[in-house]
């Protein structure tokens, strides 16, 4: 795989104009993800109602791979039930870290599949997903 394929147009455009980027006025769940090794730093904000992820936002700073991955993730998990989201997160994680299954069934996210061939960059792709999992489990304290 060539690095040009790693930096595909979809990834570059999500990096440039990330979807669902920013801190919403209200949210029910949130989490912070930080990789001190590279400085990638993201926040995930969720609104979960009746077990459905009604709204997803993220904000933070990082490399193009991490930002595009977060942006694509927010698109794919919006309006999913918590169980569906968990299953997608697990599929993505298993593919990236264990090379199990493939990303085709996850739609657009499959543009990230090349990252797996760059061991030093896998954490860039997975940081927002780890943070998402944590956010789902972390309601805003009253």
């Amino acid at each position: 795989m060539n690095q040009n394929e790693l930096y595909q147009q979809v990834i570059l455009s999500h990096n440039k104009s990330p979807k669902n980027f920013g801190k919403p006025e209200s949210f029910t769940h949130w989490a912070e993800g930080f990789n001190p090794l590279c400085g990638d730093h993201y926040f995930i904000y969720l609104t979960i109602e009746d077990n459905v992820i009604k709204n997803v936002f993220f904000e933070g700073e990082g490399c193009a791979i991490s930002k595009a991955s977060a942006s694509l993730m927010t698109e794919s998990l919006k309006n999913k039930t918590v169980e569906e989201a968990d299953s997608i997160i697990k599929k993505f994680h298993d593919y990236m870290t264990l090379s199990e299954g493939d990303l085709k069934e996850l739609g657009k996210i499959s543009v990230l599949s090349g990252v797996k061939d760059y061991p030093a960059r896998i954490k860039c792709a997975t940081i927002s997903w780890h943070t998402m999992k944590q956010a789902i489990e972390t309601p805003v304290s009253e």
């Binding site: 690095q3 790693l6 930096y7 590279c38 990082g62 490399c63 193009a64 791979i65 760059y118």
Partner: peptide, 13 residues
Amino acid sequence: GIHPHDVGSLLDS
């Protein structure tokens, strides 16, 4: 506007 890790990966290519 370009993160060093992206710079490093692309220079490696």
